[in-house]
Amino acid sequence: MDPVTAMFLIIAGGVLVGVCVHFIPASAVGAMSASTGIATGPSMLSFGAGLSGILSASFALDSGLAAMLASGAAGSTLMVVLTILGGNLVNAFGTGVPPVSGQTASGQSVLGSSTKDAITGWEQKPFVTPGTDGHGMPVQTAISGVIGGIIGGLGGAMVFFGVQFMFVPVSQEAAGLSGMIAAGIFLINCVLPAYTLVGKTEGMFDRKMLRVPKTFLSCLIVSTFLALIIYSTSTYASMGAT
């Protein structure tokens, strides 16, 4: 692999990170079981998933790109799945509300006027507590979270691999530094989509999914800028070293 390919890997990873935020269900009012989604802001949750992905990807650092991507995706997905499971357990056995999609129940999701879960076909409408916008994470939302975890983990691992590849020749502490920089790029790309999601998303069946092109373009521009900085940094440093 050459540095230019590594640079494109960073750009592609950054864009994937941005897109993943749209898939991971999150909502701040979910903390009061007043909305469908994991009870935190979308960007912070995606960042948590991304960090888990980067951390698990680092374990496969010497095993090549494919193993790193798989490890990153697995780590990130595991984090999202466990959070969804924990959230659902608290909702079901603590608060006493079933997992239900508010947007699907009101017929406002991308599924159109259907009020049934897209995967199981279970009716959503009767289970929504009046005055709320759903609660917990039903099957379609949980599956969306899994897809988001995979995309985010892949993106994080790609950025990590790209940065690490470029920093190995010029730094003795390339792995640690690359992890920190990859986390920084992950965070920058996480917060941009949060502006389009306005603090809440139910995942891939949410109508806000239609705003993905805006996220894609924004993250592409920002990731290109960051990748260019890292590319020029490493090229300049390796020129100085030789």
Binding site: A28, G41, P42, S43, M44, F47, L187, C190, V191, A194, Y195, L197, V198, G199
Partner: peptide, 9 residues
């Protein structure tokens, strides 16, 4: 639309 903490991070 995103938290105050997000913008700080």
């Amino acid at each position: 639309g995103t938290g105050t903490s997000s913008i700080g991070y």
